[in-house]
Structure formats: C-alpha cells, structure tokens
Amino acid sequence: MKKNIFKEFTKGLFKENPILIIMLGLCSCLAVSTDVSNALGMSLGFSFVLIISELLVSIFRKIIPNEVRIPIFLIFIAVPTTIVDLVMKAYFPSLSKSMGVFIPLIVVNCIVLGRIEAFSYKKNFVENLMDSLGMALGYSWVIIVLSIIREIFGKGTFLGIRVMPEVYQPMSILTSPPGGFFLIAVFIALLNGILKRRS
C-alpha cells in the first residue's frame, strides 16, 4: 500500500511526465522557458493551481453530480488560476508582465483538466496529493532545466546576471521559437532513449 502511494508520486517525474511523455502543457512550457525567473514563476503558479484543484476535486468528488462535473471542474481550476494571476500582478508585476497571457492560460492547461478527469475524480485524497505533487514536480523540472539551458546559452545570463565570459556570443536562436521546439525534441528523444534502454 505504502509503495503504491509512493509510485503515484514518482510516475509524474519520468515515466508519465506530463510534458515529455503525455505531451500536454507544451504551450506554457516553451513560452516561459526563455528565462529562469519566468520558469520558476510559472512552475510555482502551475503547481499551486494543479495541487489545489486536484485536492478540491478529491474532497468534493462524492457530492459532484456526474452530469455537471465539467463545469464544476472548470470552477475548481479557474478560481485558483485567477488567484495566481491577481497575486502575481500585485506582488511580482515584472514577472507577471513578461509571462503575459500564459498565467490566465493555466486554466486551459491540458494537464490540469486531464489529470482531474482521468485521475482525481476516481481516487482518494492521499493518492491525489501524491499525484499532483509528482505531476507538478515533473512539469517544473522540465521547464526549469529547459530555461536554464535557454537562458545560459541563449542570453549568456542566469537569473538576469551575466555568467558567460564577455567574449561569448549568445546563441539567441535558443530563446526564439525554433530553438525551443528543437530543444524539446532533443529532450523527448533523450528521455525516450533512456526509458527504452532501461526496459
């Protein structure tokens, strides 16, 4: 039993990684990973929404009528998303500005609705807690690693501070869309390769 719960947590990291394996939530992943600070902000915002909405669904799943479950899920997602949006605007205005429309778009991030529909509605509180933590972490590590690569090599900086020597010419293609698409391709290929070799 205990081992099972642990598995709910670890599956999100690699085996069922929401971005690299299930291929969901790509929009925000590529858009905010141009800067480490954006990626950190997005990970926090996304994790908050995912964890809160999964837990809400698991708490109320017994009293949610089946026919109207989708509108209720939407409320459970939209409310925390709005909270994240307002709080970011109020306390981290520059971060909120550079992420722009992608914060409100957490509401249609396919990972959240997908997890709720496929998992939360059927499982209990503890399993949901583990699952949401795992998925949030799985999402976060991918975008943070991606953003570290893109910021250091694409801009020569880390969290806005120059780390590469002055002679280094930043490869700005990495921060532009083609670089993002290519990097995610390499990531998926690598993870696929590693998982295949293991099994």
Binding site: P71, I72, I75
Partner: peptide, 13 residues
Amino acid sequence: TVFIIATIGTLLL
C-alpha cells in the same frame, strides 16, 4: 450544486 460552488468561488475571488 454548480450554483453554490460558483457563488463560493466568486466570493473568494
């Protein structure tokens, strides 16, 4: 149910 949850959500926001 939808109505109650929506109201609570709106008040919270």
